[in-house]
Amino acid sequence: MANLLEVKNLTSGYTEKEVIKNLSFSLEKGEFLGIIGPNGAGKTTLLRVITQILPSWEGKIFYSGKDIKEFPLKDLAKEVSFLPQSIEIPFSFTVEEFISMGRFPHLNRFEKMEEYDYEVVRKVMILTDVLELSSKNVNDLSGGERQRVYLGQTLVQEPKLLLLDEPIAHLDIGHQIKILDLIKKLNQEEGLTVIAIFHDLNLASEYCDNLILLNNGEIHKIGPPNEVLTYRNIEEVYQTIVIVKENPLSSKPHILLIPQWSSK
């Protein structure tokens, strides 16, 4: 299968501080890739470079075989959409207004939303189960609802590659599964390629085809969950002791934490 995304010797960071160093990996079309690693490992930075929010210092990123820098930003936005870790909206937009903003890359400056655009927005709102919230103020919603609305905005972009920065942080387990199931469904049924950052290693293990374990801006290990999520890898990178078992239903690795305060 063809590579949708190819990252070659990528180095980047903020002003003086180098955050990711010489990263190389590739991503097949239709793949669900998880990025895991401790705080400050460079997970968010990597997604920011792919979306052109941060410039790369060295190395190249190819999307569909073409250097990503050759894409005008608006054309890239038709292919790749990004859900940041947190979005703050200082003003009151309705759910429908907010989700419709995701159509921006598909519209010319003086072009209005047409029937097709409204149809896309409607479909996404049904898919993310926010249709009945459509005229509510986004800031008045609960955390779970809000995350579905944010995700909805990235989906009406009709992306081929979806980048998610901790899509389930701050959500209860019910909402976590609801969001991830939805993304997995799009991945399986529509062939949407996904890169998602996870803090929860067990959910990463369940949903992802492959994982990248980042440490200090470098790839510590890349591969399917059962190769990456070994107790040795995790203990080295996270500096904490764990036991790795197998989920009896999915036979994916499952990590158990071992607190060190010991009450013997």
């Binding site: 929010i53 930003l73 936005a77 990004f82 940041p84 909206i89 207004e97 903003m101 921006f104």
Partner: peptide, 22 residues
């Protein structure tokens, strides 16, 4: 002429860039 961009800029730099606004 830039009112649509102005809407998206309220969502912050990250969202605006990833939606295609320099």
């Amino acid at each position: 002429v830039f009112s649509r961009e102005l809407n998206i800029l309220t969502l912050g730099e990250e969202k605006a860039t990833s939606l295609g606004i320099p």
